[in-house]
Simulated scan of single mutants.
Amino acid sequence: MRKCTLLLLGMALTCAAQAQSSFSRNFAYVEAGGNGLFGSINYERQFSKKPGFGMRAGLGFYAEYDFYLTVPVAFNYLIPLKNENQFLEAALGLTPTLFKSRPEKNHVNIDVDHFFIPTFGFRKHTRNNFMWRINVGSVVGIQDGAVLPWVGFSYGKRF
């Protein structure tokens, strides 16, 4: 699983480096629910001047019996609606979660769990370069196959 996480982060960095040559369409936002599970801070980059493919990555958390660090990464596609500031958004994400496992002989192990998170939602850009969105989807546990319906709300700024 650690190899999968490293591969995913490598792909994310490669895509971000390739996107540097395209038109700057950047977003920074906070998200409740969504790909970060409970909460996250994210950066998103749209790859072209027109709405279309983009990528987002962030740092988040999840707390159930203990505190888990999450690293949400997703590829998204924006579909423009009649109003040029409103979009439908479809995304496929993978969220590794890092947590401490039980110590063995005074040694703390850090384990990684992965969640696949497909989402679909609505996004609105405001005149002041702010953005909000709401999305629905499912959190799918890769190790155990458990499926949980999920909702996310984001608010941030375009720069």
Rank of each mutant, 00 (worst) to 15 (best):
M1R: 12
R2N: 15
C4D: 09
C4F: 11
L9I: 08
L9N: 07
M11Y: 06
A12T: 13
A12G: 02
A16L: 15
Q18R: 13
Q20P: 00
F23V: 00
F23E: 01
R25Q: 03
A28T: 10
Y29Q: 02
E31Y: 02
A32N: 03
L37E: 06
F38Q: 06
I41L: 14
R45W: 00
R45L: 03
S48N: 13
K49E: 09
F53E: 09
A57I: 10
E64D: 12
Y65M: 06
V73R: 06
A74W: 07
L81I: 07
K82Q: 14
K82N: 13
N83S: 13
N83P: 01
L88N: 08
G93I: 04
P96A: 13
T97V: 14
T97P: 05
F99L: 03
F99Y: 15
K100C: 11
P103W: 04
N106L: 08
H107F: 11
V108P: 00
F116P: 06
P118L: 05
T119E: 12
G121A: 01
R123K: 15
H125N: 14
R127L: 15
W132T: 08
R133Y: 03
V139R: 15
Q143W: 03
D144T: 14
G145W: 07
G145Q: 02
G145D: 08
G145P: 01
F153I: 15
Y155L: 15
K157A: 11
